[in-house]
Design a protein around this nucleic acid. Structure first.
Lengths: 135, 135
DNA sequence: GATAAAGGTTCCAGCAACAGGAAGGTCAAG
DNA sequence: CTTGACCTTCCTGTTGCTGGAACCTTTATC
């Protein structure tokens, strides 16, 4: 199967598939003309990678998960551990972003957003405590 | 003022300050020995940048915000617009991460995490519908 | 048979926003 | 005079691709 079809089936851009080969995540065969030749197993792996990536796992996590997936004697604890670590990182990111959001939302709310130069957003960034809307 | 003191005052690593100079965010003077020489204004700018960056604004946003900050005739609408766009991006990121978190949390929850190979996480990634904990 | 479109190939550059480290100059203290 | 703490520049690496150039192959059409 050519890379185009695999791209369509796995949902990954051809560029990404080539990249995954380059970093050793997948190893397609080659036809005599030099084209990559993928089997259904390769497609399955790539689909797996696509799903794992869209859950935010890093490439290195994906590499490990793929190995565990192929290891029929793995312990599910290993997989769970990776997922839990990743989950914790996501929670942290969410918390950080929510802090940013709260601060920003407040600033946006207090800024008149008109033609005048007075701006609580810039005030806060420059270290001044911006005036509140209501005292 | 040397870069070390500025780093301490602004909270930015010296490396970052040099980088900011390289990309034209700041332009310190030089002493005869070649050392960078920062004024209080420079420190103030860097502190501004530090705050803006920690609210997640991109470097290019920061560049614009800094220019608006220096432009005493700016319209606060311009600042508000940037902040609102950024806020929207943050909201999107939070939503994406929360989707990931929900899926992952569910998977982690259904995985026994013991010595056995059976693993709902891998099942889901490989495209099988994993069994639920309770039917 | 000529040609053009639609695949495929490799390789190189670039993104964001720095961080790490090498090799070396400078300065103040003991 | 040496030691150590600074400072300098320059180069590489990070993460996960994406875009583009320059070039083959295959297939369809005239």
């Amino acid at each position: 199967m050519n890379i185009g079809s695999v791209s369509a089936k796995s949902g990954l851009p051809a560029k990404t598939i080539r990249y995954y080969e380059e970093i050793g995540l997948i190893a397609p065969d080659r036809t005599p003309n030099g084209y990559r030749d993928f089997s259904d197993t390769h497609v399955h792996k790539l689909t797996f990678l696509h799903r794992a990536r869209s859950l935010g796992f890093t490439i290195e996590d994906c590499r490990t998960l793929l190995a565990l997936w192929e290891d029929k004697a793995r312990a599910s604890a290993e997989v769970k551990h990776i997922a839990q670590d990743h989950l914790a990182e996501i929670e942290t990111k969410i918390a950080d972003l929510m802090d940013m959001r709260d601060t920003l939302a407040h600033l946006v709310d207090t800024c008149a957003g008109d033609h005048r130069p007075d701006c609580p957003i810039l005030k806060q960034l420059s270290g001044e405590t911006p005036d509140e809307k209501e005292a």
